[in-house]
Design a protein around this nucleic acid. Sequence first.
DNA 1: TTGAAAGCGCTAACAG
DNA 2: CTGTTAGCGCTTTCAA
Lengths: 343, 343
Amino acid sequence: MPVAHDDTRPLTLRDVSEASGVSEMTVSRVLRNRGDVSPATREKVLEAAKALGYVPNKIAGALASQRVNLVAVIIPSFRNMVFPEVLSGISSVLEETDLQPVVGVTDYLPEKEEKVLYEMLSWRPSGVIIAGLEHTDASRAMLKASGIPVVEIMDVDGTPIDSMVGISHRRAGREMAKAILKAGFQNIGFMGTKMPLDHRARKRFEGFTEALAKNGVEIMDQEFYSGGSALAKGREMTRDMLDRTPELDFLYYSNDMIGAGGLLYLLEKGVKIPEEIGLAGFNGVELLDGLPRKLATMDACRTEIGRKAAQIIAARVDNPDAEIEKEIELTPTIAYGGTLRRK
Amino acid sequence: MPVAHDDTRPLTLRDVSEASGVSEMTVSRVLRNRGDVSPATREKVLEAAKALGYVPNKIAGALASQRVNLVAVIIPSFRNMVFPEVLSGISSVLEETDLQPVVGVTDYLPEKEEKVLYEMLSWRPSGVIIAGLEHTDASRAMLKASGIPVVEIMDVDGTPIDSMVGISHRRAGREMAKAILKAGFQNIGFMGTKMPLDHRARKRFEGFTEALAKNGVEIMDQEFYSGGSALAKGREMTRDMLDRTPELDFLYYSNDMIGAGGLLYLLEKGVKIPEEIGLAGFNGVELLDGLPRKLATMDACRTEIGRKAAQIIAARVDNPDAEIEKEIELTPTIAYGGTLRRK
DNA sequence: TTGAAAGCGCTAACAG
DNA sequence: CTGTTAGCGCTTTCAA
């Protein structure tokens, strides 16, 4: 039971020192399990600390030791289920170390990224994990100057500041295009998000159209949305697109949520899938397991990216000169589901 | 363009001071927009800071000023879409202030909550927003002793340590039970998560059964799941329960995701909804907008809870003695959708 | 095994 | 408007 202390000032090491009759230094040693302390003193100190309800001040500790056990993690959004999964990969690895992730969100805005980064770096974290390879010049400069390990994640189509872990979205788009053509579809429509700043979606789209072009095929129709429930948007866009371009025989969605919306719509209409129309999404979200028909998709290796990135940080914090692989490309595989088969 | 400095030591105020020929104190004033500084010196300082690529050290700043602009936010999980929405409510309010949220995750484990809380409090944040009213004794003690504003969110069925913002889950359960009975359903099944530590789900369930009992009705069947895709689980559980208890005429799901799974399953089977079977979920997630039929649900006021909680913290940080309402109960309303109407 | 002194990088408070 | 002084609460380093 914490014992009340005079005023409302937070407790300090000194309070514990006085309460236990042991020097501040020794109290500090006990509380950090550092150096040799006799079991007796140790006992006394722990008792006093607990009785008082002492919580160490990491700010002072960090300033004195010049070490901060935080890892800055910067992502575009929490709403896109992709990022929580990356975070859980990061957490699972960092939990084994004494490092702690601290998350910042950019809303896909470069200026906000810059601000968040500045804010986080000012806490002098031990490392940075940041989504994407595209940053403002100022952001790059800060990251370079920080002198701490930096891992850029999700994407490998570009040059990292320090190291990177991800998939090639360009290649992902190409692979999907090839699979669709191979399955015999030719009249292809595309639906995606209206987000010029989502570089990974853009790269997938570019890879996709590029691979089609190489085979003499061009997208017949395309539509981009923003805002609203992705599932509902997928439904609407699919309806509109098919009204507009009824000869389509395949729909490629830039994410699984809108793909699921499209799938539900088509099933309701009694459209034969994939005989009349084939479908594919992107991400491999768990949600798809519950749909009436499994949507073809491509796994973005989210958890694994998080794990690998955290491992790099942990290794470098442990030993700044550790020999580590600086560019890790994971390979997503196509899950064919029931919507991308030879028609 | 940042100018290289000798060694790899991070830059300090002193470096900027020397580069600009202005005292450290004045540099500090400029960088914080504090006090009066002549435009000329101001200019010089900003230029030097930018040229060097200086990023302030908040650790030192916080220690010196005894003020930390962080708000600790402690939630059970990122995976449950509820929490990202609460976060976005919090962010939207804190963005207008100079406070910053820092998120910690407990995985619904009281001991982990305790650990995360300890960890966060050791950074001496300006306030704490924490999900739920149930905590270990040690956690409560820490929160009380912290001397900072604490807002417990999501739930109001209990006594807060300091203040609380949320809905009454017990009442939510009761209201739903009444609505179901009023619509003429009597043979009711329940499906939920197998999470003894999800107190809010438990309270909803208790309120639900209690209100039924008051009307002489008892749940005919119930099932609890854990792990896996919620959509898929909803589908499976619904199938199993109807196989087991075919006379059911209403299914109440503890969250919208499993409810959506059940809905999709029943629609596929050609079951008439709500004539043969009525359905309801809980949360009011955006996802539902895209389903073939809108599922009845109850809004959990997620964003609003986040906003209100952040407002309380901001007000108290601004003025510790501010007169504020300490217990805010929001009232969820039933969205009837198309699955809870008189059959 | 324990303690004393010095200082981490910044800001409050005051003086000019 | 600008500078000086004295810490913030801890840990590092060295001495006992």
